[in-house]
C-alpha cells in the first residue's frame, strides 16, 4: 500500500519526542518564530461580553512574585493573610459579589484565585474601599508592589497593577485564539494554531486555560443566597 509508513516516516514521526528536537525547538525555533512573527501578550482577566451570564462568575487568577521567596518571606505572606480574617470576611460580605476566594503559595509566588460577579475594576475598587489595609499589607511583600500602595491613594494604578498580574485566559474555543492574533477576517492557517499558542505562552508564560468550568452557571452570589434563604 502506498501510504505504508517507511522507517524514515517512523523516524520523523518520533522526532518531536526526542531530546534533540526539543532542545532545538526551545532554544532556536521558538525564539526565532517569536522574533519573526511576534504576538502581543494578550491582556489578563475575563473580557466583558453582551451576554449577562458571561459577566457573572468571572475568574481572577492573580500571580504575585514575593520579594522574599525564602520560607521566612513566604511565612510573612501567610501571616499577613491569617491576621486579617475579620477584615476579609467583612469585605467579602459587603462587596457582595464574591463566590470564592483563596490564597495559595506556589514557589515564590503568592497567588490569589477568586470567582466574582461583574466588572473587574469595580470588584477591586470595592475591596480597596473596604479592606485596603489588607491589600497594603500583602502588596508590600510583592515585587514592584511599593509603587501602588497605599492603594487608597493609588486606586487607578493599583487596579491596573492587579489587572497586569491577572492571568490571560486562553479562549474557551481553541480557534478563537487565531482570531485574537489575527484581526483580519480570514487568512488564518489552522495548522499554525499550535504555533500561535506556543508564541502566546512564550510571551505570557502563565495563563489560565479557558475561563473555567461552572456547576451552576449564570447565577450571581446574591441570587444563590436569596434562593437558599440565607439573605443577601
Amino acid at each position: 500500500m502506498e501510504s505504508e509508513a517507511t522507517w524514515f516516516d517512523r523516524l520523523v514521526d518520533a522526532l518531536p519526542n526526542t531530546r534533540l528536537f526539543q532542545f532545538i525547538a526551545e532554544w532556536i525555533l521558538v525564539p526565532y518564530w517569536a522574533a519573526r512573527t511576534p504576538v502581543k501578550p494578550q491582556p489578563g482577566g475575563p473580557r466583558m461580553a453582551p451576554q449577562p451570564s458571561e459577566n457573572l462568575q468571572h475568574m481572577m487568577n492573580l500571580i504575585m512574585p514575593l520579594k522574599d521567596k525564602s520560607p521566612i518571606g513566604r511565612a510573612k505572606a501567610a501571616l499577613a493573610i491569617a491576621q486579617n480574617v475579620d477584615e476579609i470576611y467583612a469585605g467579602l460580605n459587603n462587596v457582595g459579589t464574591v463566590h470564592f476566594a483563596r490564597f495559595v503559595l506556589v514557589d515564590g509566588n503568592l497567588c490569589m484565585f477568586s470567582v466574582y460577579d461583574g466588572d473587574f475594576s469595580n470588584y477591586i475598587r470595592d475591596f480597596i474601599a473596604t479592606i485596603g489595609s489588607v491589600f497594603n499589607a500583602i502588596v508590600a511583600l510583592i515585587e514592584d508592589g511599593d509603587a501602588v500602595i497605599p492603594c487608597e491613594h493609588h486606586v487607578e494604578a493599583f487596579i491596573d497593577w492587579v489587572h497586569a498580574r491577572d492571568l490571560y485566559q486562553v479562549p474557551d474555543l481553541a480557534t478563537d485564539l487565531l482570531a485574537q492574533h489575527n484581526a483580519a477576517a480570514s487568512g488564518d492557517d489552522l495548522r499554525l494554531l499550535p504555533r500561535d499558542l506556543i508564541l502566546q505562552l512564550h510571551a505570557n508564560p502563565n495563563v489560565s486555560l479557558g475561563s473555567g468550568y461552572r456547576g451552576y452557571p449564570a447565577f450571581s452570589v446574591a441570587q444563590i443566597r436569596q434562593k437558599l434563604g440565607v439573605g443577601w
Partner: peptide, 27 residues
Amino acid sequence: QQRESPWQKILDMLCLKQPLPDPMPGQ
C-alpha cells in the same frame, strides 16, 4: 490522500506547524 512526506513534515516541525494527519490504514 497520501502520507505527508517526511521532509515536508520536518519542514512543518521547523515552522512549529502541525503536520498533516496520516491517512488511516488503507485510506
